[in-house]
């Protein structure tokens, strides 16, 4: 059984219909990527899963349980971790405080994430422990938002465009970290525009455009599929 399952999800912002019958599934232990251009609907899919913009029709099933319709904090406590695209760390909290406020599900997890454990994954954060969120660089903010979400001990991590706007060196580092996070037993759904970044970390991928899924398959197949790349991805 899949860990996460979206069945014909339709989502609206006010009157505008954004997602059209989006269906996808993520198996336990996988890294799956959601690819698409600007405005394709990747973030909206994530917001539909985490419950910030709940779908109007369709279902989101997580670990066999219907989570669509639940409030975001409940979905988080079920084990879905959301890392938003615009690096929203709490600007007035220190790095450590940012991590502390997110502690969740320690009892349900066999070896829970601790501040020390995420510091070992992101040593840079430890150096900047006492700095405020607003004082960090873009790359550090990205690390902090990922680390913060890890503190909620998610079984599934929704990563929204983590590589956007980062220097190539940091992007390479990031790919490494995703692989290490996966090794800790966390399943990852990764929204990206950057196919090559996905190819480093993901097994399968979905391509989304104008709010509907256009392609589904192995990343390796996608790399060779010039038509899809041409049509739906900015290469």
């Amino acid at each position: 059984m899949a860990l996460l399952e979206l069945a014909s999800v339709n989502t609206f912002y006010g009157r505008s219909h954004i997602l059209f019958d989006v269906s996808l599934s993520v198996g336990k232990g996988e890294v799956v990527s959601l690819l698409g251009r600007n405005g394709a609907g990747k973030s909206t899919t994530f917001r539909s899963i985490i419950g910030l913009t709940p779908p109007q029709t369709g279902e989101v099933i997580f670990k066999g349980e219907r989570i669509s319709g639940m409030r975001a904090f409940r979905i988080c406590r079920k084990g879905v971790g959301f890392v938003p695209e615009d690096r929203r760390c709490f600007p007035d909290l220190t790095v450590r405080e940012n991590l502390e406020v997110a502690v969740r599900r320690e009892k349900q997890t066999s070896s829970p994430w601790t501040v020390e454990k995420v510091y070992s994954l992101f040593p840079r954060l430890q150096e900047r422990e006492k700095n405020l969120g607003s004082q960090l660089s873009g790359g550090e903010q990205q690390m902090l938002t990922i680390a913060r979400t890890l503190m909620t001990n998610p079984d599934l991590l929704l990563l929204d465009e983590p590589s956007e706007g980062l220097a190539p060196m940091i992007v390479a580092l990031l790919a490494d970290m995703i692989i290490r996070i996966r090794a800790e037993g966390v399943t990852v759904l990764l929204a990206e525009q950057n196919l090559h970044f996905c190819a480093k970390v993901a097994d399968r991928g979905y391509v989304i455009d104008k709010g509907s899924v256009k392609y589904e398959g192995k990343i390796s197949d996608l790399l060779g599929n010039e038509e899809i790349k041409e049509k739906y991805l900015a290469v």
């Binding site: 910030l52 975001a72 904090f73 959301f82 929203r88 969740r104 599900r105």
Partner: peptide, 14 residues
């Protein structure tokens, strides 16, 4: 303090 700077994010963090 976290909530007053970003309510939605706090919600998503449980």
């Amino acid at each position: 303090r976290a909530t007053s700077s970003d309510r939605e994010m706090a919600d998503a963090l449980g």
